[in-house]
Simulated scan of single mutants.
Amino acid sequence: MRRSVEAPSTGATSAAVSQVLVGTCTGVSAALTAYPVGTGQALRYGLAGVAMYALLKLRTRGGDRPRIRVRPREWALLFLLALTGQTLFNQLLLGALDHADPATVGSILGCAPVVLATVGALPAGRQPGRRIVAASLLVVAGAVAVEGFGSATPTGLALALGVLVCELAFSLLAVPLLPRLGPLRVAAYSTLLAVPQSLAIGWLSDGEAMVRMPTVAEAAALVFLGLIATVVAFLLWYSALGRLGPERAGLFSGLVPIAAALSALVLGTGTVHPEQVAGSALVGLGVALGMFAPRRSWQAVRT
């Protein structure tokens, strides 16, 4: 899969929309606070996985696209991608919120762009450009300003760091899979693998209490999270990773707290403060700086 360096507008749009959708999940997930986590994840990922697998079959049925056999190493990466980026991410996030306030967890998650900017280029033999790193620092500063500073116990900080690792794995483990498998296969297979993982964790944590019919509001939330926040957002994000690379695509994760704050304002569950407006401006400046980084920042490192 060839990355578009000179004309990244398609990748930028995909990355931006995907992260805005992820940010809006905050308000929707509030409807599931009383629903068993493992069961909710399994239903969400099951619905999304079936939808993406059906799309994959429609694309290959006509014979215009070759069938690709997934190799054992790729299955291992897909399993780890599902385990970290989907299954454990949600479990650790809920655990972190029991020992830390949302501002602290969100601020730690906001560090994802700078980590992706510094380590995302290394597997491809590139060195991170100084402008990309500077842009990611602006995004992190803006995301922290939007989230605000909070408090946490040592356990909460450790769990929040685990959430950050899972967030990074969701992108970095997908990078070597995308050139051969493509965004749709990576998203569909990893999402389907997350279903039995979620059921297993749900059974260990909730036992027989994990079996419960969702209410109308819970069912509506699960459908939104499955079809919009998973199918659409995952496909757009992996498409952006293939076009932009993890360094530049990672900058757009700074949009998540902005979208969360705006969705809370629209839903009437929150307000927007001046520091959040300033933080949003910093995120926008960082994204713009990173997207227009000079081409030499993306050249391979000579060994």
Results as ranks from 00 to 15, higher is better:
82 A>P: 07
263 S>V: 10
131 R>Q: 14
7 A>K: 14
266 V>G: 08
274 P>M: 12
90 N>F: 15
121 A>V: 07
285 L>Q: 05
218 E>G: 10
15 A>Q: 07
74 E>L: 08
120 G>W: 03
111 C>H: 02
35 Y>T: 05
182 G>E: 10
210 M>Q: 14
288 A>D: 00
247 E>N: 05
183 P>S: 13
255 L>S: 01
214 P>M: 06
154 P>F: 03
238 Y>T: 02
288 A>T: 11
168 L>K: 07
5 V>D: 11
177 L>F: 10
206 D>I: 12
191 T>D: 02
173 L>E: 07
92 L>H: 01
160 A>D: 01
110 G>Q: 09
199 L>G: 03
41 Q>G: 08
212 R>S: 14
244 L>D: 08
231 V>M: 04
50 V>Y: 05
87 T>S: 14
290 G>D: 04
231 V>Y: 02
172 L>Q: 10
10 T>H: 12
84 T>I: 07
289 L>I: 00
93 L>K: 00
42 A>Y: 11
192 L>F: 11
179 P>L: 11
247 E>L: 05
224 F>L: 15
206 D>E: 15
18 S>N: 13
122 L>W: 14
177 L>K: 04
143 A>E: 09
210 M>F: 09
94 L>S: 06
233 A>M: 11
188 A>C: 08
32 L>Y: 08
145 A>K: 09
164 L>K: 03
171 S>L: 11
166 C>R: 09
146 V>Q: 03
84 T>Y: 09
269 T>H: 11
70 V>S: 09
139 V>Q: 01
267 L>G: 13
164 L>F: 06
223 V>E: 06
136 S>D: 02
297 S>Y: 13
176 P>K: 00
134 A>P: 00
252 F>H: 14
103 A>Q: 15
162 G>D: 08
219 A>Q: 10
192 L>K: 12
62 G>D: 04
18 S>F: 00
277 V>Y: 12
113 P>A: 07
220 A>C: 09
103 A>K: 11
92 L>R: 02
300 A>M: 11
10 T>E: 10
106 G>E: 09
191 T>Q: 02
91 Q>P: 02
